[in-house]
Design a protein around this nucleic acid. Structure first.
Lengths: 138, 138
DNA sequence: AAACAAAATTGTAATGATTACAACTACTAT
DNA sequence: ATAGTAGTTGTAATCATTACAATTTTGTTT
């Protein structure tokens, strides 16, 4: 079944120069409708019911392509595995080290305040990670 | 051979409540004298000549203990593996995605500017990562 | 100093995330 | 329709990290 949010996902892919295959649309759509910063495994488990032939390798390949084109964000906050975020506007993340949930954190300023970045460096990506215990877990 | 910086390493461990074994002193000393944000493997390779019986598991165990006590910082900037920093005062990091070197970045303000952190959360750790291409690699 | 207990170290095996790769399928353009 | 390119799939390999059991070291008590 094709929904309007899947058409959004398709157009989003196209606007990032990524050819919109079934699988890529599905992964992008999953990220746009699950703001939980899922791992590869969660995305794969969430989709394999609907797309019975889907391979985990495809999920990896897709996320790599999406991340390189800037369509999604790769989070390395958890250490053991990557998590993905379909919303790419500047924001930070908070990981609860007890329940392992990742929460979005708004930023006070758009620009992050690095002083003395290495001479002549070109910045492609900025990630601000908070870790701790969330209110529910305390 | 025991040097004065190794005594510093020993005292540093003790001040963090970590029993100063030979191996732990060696790892701590390595981090204090190599400000290169080394990986487990680099530390192990750097030390195994001098400590022939050293095991990589010990390096892992040691870094875990050091990190949990706050004596060292664990960086998850690289994605594939952890890197370690013996200097724990607040600062950010820049990873050159070409040469894979990690540089320190001073912060403009001591406090990092998260707005709307999850209700009632307790923050234990803040990491600010920049990624890009360093001046030498461009 | 000897004996004991607790903690640390070691080597190997297991785990888990990710990547490599080769065969197969789908899409595009002539 | 055909050929060529890009995308997908499943399996096997890789690499970082952890689990674990045996051994060694360290600290404490007698």
């Amino acid at each position: 079944m094709i929904t309007t949010t899947m058409i959004v996902a398709r157009q989003y892919l196209e606007s990032h120069g990524i050819r919109p295959s079934q699988q890529r649309i599905a992964v992008m759509h999953y990220l746009l409708t699950h703001r939980t910063h899922p791992s590869v495994d969660e995305i794969y488990e969430g989709l394999k019911g609907e797309y019975s032939t889907l391979s985990k390798t495809t999920v990896y390949n897709t996320l790599k392509a999406l991340s390189e084109s800037g369509a999604v964000l790769t989070l390395n906050i958890a250490g053991t595995m990557a998590n993905y975020d379909g919303y790419v506007s500047p924001h930070a993340h908070f990981l609860c080290t007890k329940c392992n949930k990742i929460y979005d954190v708004e930023l006070a300023h758009t620009e992050l305040l690095g002083k003395k970045l290495p001479e002549g460096a070109k910045i492609d990506d900025i990630q601000l990670y908070y870790k701790g215990i969330c209110g529910r877990c305390r």
